[in-house]
């Protein structure tokens, strides 16, 4: 269908908190009838791994609603602890997991493109990534983004 609206998203972050906006917006846009393409680059590539073990850190993240003194945030194991607390909270509140939202995007035929340069730069192993993706560069992104109605960088 040529008359469908198009949404292009660049995903540059790979932490648990930053994983939500792109997958929520992509899956919702797809449900609204948009044709959606997500372009994953730099740390965003982490979101394409088969086994997600996403973390977040309270360090340098003053907006995070965790009351911890900065000195405590630097303690070893703090990142893992805060990440597992956040995952437990997400689950208990009935908010979808990142895996679930990603699956819903795939099911809705959201096209996912992984940045080839980042794969090479960080020595990613393609077999660690999910199968439903393509590989491409900046020109590949613009092929779609150039005709999109909405473009977001997240």
């Amino acid at each position: 269908m040529e008359d469908r609206k198009k949404l292009a998203i660049i995903v540059t972050q790979g932490t648990l908190d930053w994983a939500y906006p792109p997958f929520i917006l992509a899956s919702t846009a797809a449900a609204l009838g948009y044709e959606v393409q997500m372009y994953f680059t730099f740390y965003g590539l982490q979101l394409l791994k088969k086994n997600l073990d996403l973390q977040l850190t309270p360090l340098g993240n003053p907006a995070m609603p965790v009351a911890l003194p900065v000195i405590a945030q630097t303690l070893p194991g703090m990142q893992a602890m805060v990440s597992s607390m956040m995952k437990a909270k997400i689950k208990s509140k009935g908010v979808a997991s990142v895996e679930e939202l990603r699956d819903l995007c795939i099911e809705a035929e959201v096209r996912m493109v992984a940045c080839q340069m980042t794969i090479d730069l960080f020595d990613f192993n393609k077999s660690d990534l999910i199968d439903e993706i393509e590989f491409g560069g900046a020109a590949t992104f613009f092929e779609f983004a150039g005709q999109s109605d909405v473009s977001l960088s997240l």
């Binding site: 929520i24 919702t28 009935g94 979808a96």
Partner: peptide, 12 residues
């Protein structure tokens, strides 16, 4: 019990 965007996605 479901939060945004799940009700919309399930409806679709």
């Amino acid at each position: 019990g479901l939060h945004c965007p799940l009700p919309i996605l399930r409806a679709k």
